[in-house]
Design a protein around this nucleic acid. Structure first.
Lengths: 332, 332
DNA sequence: CTGAAAGCGCTTACAG
DNA sequence: CTGAAAGCGCTTACAG
């Protein structure tokens, strides 16, 4: 390439990375020849030389869980726009696999977005000290993170139910190890106490339709007239559980989901708590690229510590699965 | 590393790539020192040297479309097992972006799995001639591909409806540019003709809940007593459209989806056509890695042309949204 | 504004 | 069984 353009390889390199250092005519000429020959700078060689891979990774517990695709999509889109490719990692909800993946990805990327990590805090912290890392949906001091703050939406949900006249509600929980689950459960409990209504907590645990459906019996037995589910999938399962028994929504039970991943794809349309999760993906990548740049500069200067923590707020989207506790006395 | 272990870099290299060429004791010793120092072979340098990136890409039209995550998941899992990382590309259903992505990914991967490509045949063919490429859900002669053959399942669906007594059914179509859509439509039309029942075709076009819901009016107007939808999302939209009108499933309309991505997450549980789509992801990667290996060998030998075409079969999963056309005369 | 030369960290014939 | 040396295709001080 350099030879057929009659210049040195250094010049070719500059044409593609620092054209402002060159005479305009040189740039034009070399680019012409390059176009002719279909020449493109060899990515791997560039990477080896500069130490910048132009690649990030997004690691999630389960791609097939509908919460994650929007996050991944936004992350990939933003990274692509900034000239970065995106590696995808699926930990299968397994901390060991997550650790493994992190080790592999570490040497193949400039930085990692770790979504809903199941790893111990100190492991994450250690990794973050060495390499650019941004957490999504995990709140670890000292590590850059963006949190989908569902607490605000959950409080609105409790208020909504209290105003409809519900006296006893139940929180149908998700995975115990999930930060979001802990946050949502606390918000339900605290806000219920504040409003002077009874709140109980029970399992579904697995964020799956079947788990929600199976939880229906316990919900009905509890005497609660409304359920706030850890996520939409569980909520939808409860809807099925009710339909199975010939019970009506919302008359026999008000149901509120979380995440708004099902949109209006249920019938009746599900009242839920919406948080801009794709915003979380975009923001996380933005922060990560910031860290990558800082690190590049820090090599030549001093390390500047920063601890960004972004919380994205949420809000209740009332649709058709909530109403007054009309048949609340069905058990009597 | 080499120096502290008292060997040459060549030996260190061999310890990690061709240990069988070395004395057992040398391997053990070098590995010990490596563990001590936390040394790991530099991936990018390896890649530059060998020309093997250890990376593949999976390109899909839309990560958020629930059809794709299982494919991606299986592909990533299988690639990971074989020591390959997976880059993810989202074309946003845009052929221009798809072409762009392909060009970028081409130099960053050993090969690409292209799912539901929207690109012209010759563009895909040209790419496949130069680099390992496997298509999923696109049938282009001369290019390795794995097809989710929904035709078999669709024929079963038509038979199922005919046996229930339906005389007029409608196919609610998906994206016109989709290979799957064409295949499914043809299968509905042909099998209906074979069974001597009437089949009409109408739009939903976009594979979205709302499009399905909006299609309900036309379905009812058509006089059809059963609908086979391009996919589960559209089918679910039809379910909502019917519920909205206070009409019953399956009495007022039998509905069959396709892809089984919703599993039993609807109520009533959706009769649908299942194809092992995650199997498609796994198989595609398997074929791709085969191509990558072949190409590596072909460099030193002769190119061996092969044209693998795998069709994964499908079958009807009867659940609760199909039944006899009880109120078929509702319009009279 | 441009080039010669060293270097990024491996791999791989070629010798021995 | 192991090492010296060239090479993978760039980038980047250093000269000029």
């Amino acid at each position: 390439m350099a030879s057929t353009a009659g210049v040195s390889t250094a010049t070719v390199s500059r044409v593609f990375s620092k054209p402002h250092l060159l005479r305009e005519s040189t740039v034009v000429h070399v680019k012409e020849v390059a176009a002719q020959l279909g020449y493109v700078p060899h990515h791997t060689a560039q990477a080896l030389s500069t130490g910048r891979l132009g690649t990030i990774a997004v690691v999630v517990p389960d791609i097939a869980n509908p919460f994650f695709p929007p996050v991944i999509r936004a992350a990939q889109g933003h990274a692509y726009g900034a000239g970065f490719s995106t590696l995808l990692g699926d930990t299968d909800e397994d901390p060991a696999k997550e650790a493994d993946l992190l080790a592999t990805l570490e040497q193949r990327t400039d930085g990692i977005v770790l979504v809903s990590s199941r790893l111990p805090e100190d492991v994450v912290r250690r990794h973050a000290r060495h390499r650019p890392l941004v957490l999504v949906n995990r709140d670890i001091t000292g590590v850059a993170r963006v949190l989908v703050d569902s607490a605000a939406g959950v409080r609105q949900a409790v208020d909504h139910l209290a105003e409809l006249g519900h006296q006893h509600i139940t929180y149908v929980s998700g995975p115990d190890s999930s930060w979001s689950n802990q946050q949502r459960r606390s918000a339900v409990l605290e806000q219920s106490a504040a409003r002077g209504i009874t709140a109980t907590v029970q399992g579904a645990h697995r964020p799956e339709h079947d788990a929600g459906r199976a939880a229906t019996a316990e919900i009905l037995a509890s005497g609660a007239t409304a359920a706030i589910a850890f996520d939409d999938t569980i909520a939808q399962g409860i809807l099925s559980g009710m339909a199975e028994r010939g019970l009506a929504i919302p008359d026999d039970l008000s149901v509120i989901g979380c995440d708004d991943i099902l949109a209006v794809n249920t019938y009746p349309p599900l009242t839920t708590i919406r948080s801009r999760i794709s915003e979380a993906g975009r923001l996380a990548v933005e922060m990560l690229l910031q860290l990558v740049e800082n690190r590049a500069e820090a090599d030549a200067g001093e390390d500047d510590r920063m601890e960004p923590r972004h919380a994205l707020t949420s809000s209740l989207i009332p649709r058709a699965t909530t109403g007054p506790p009309i048949r609340r006395s069905r058990k009597g």
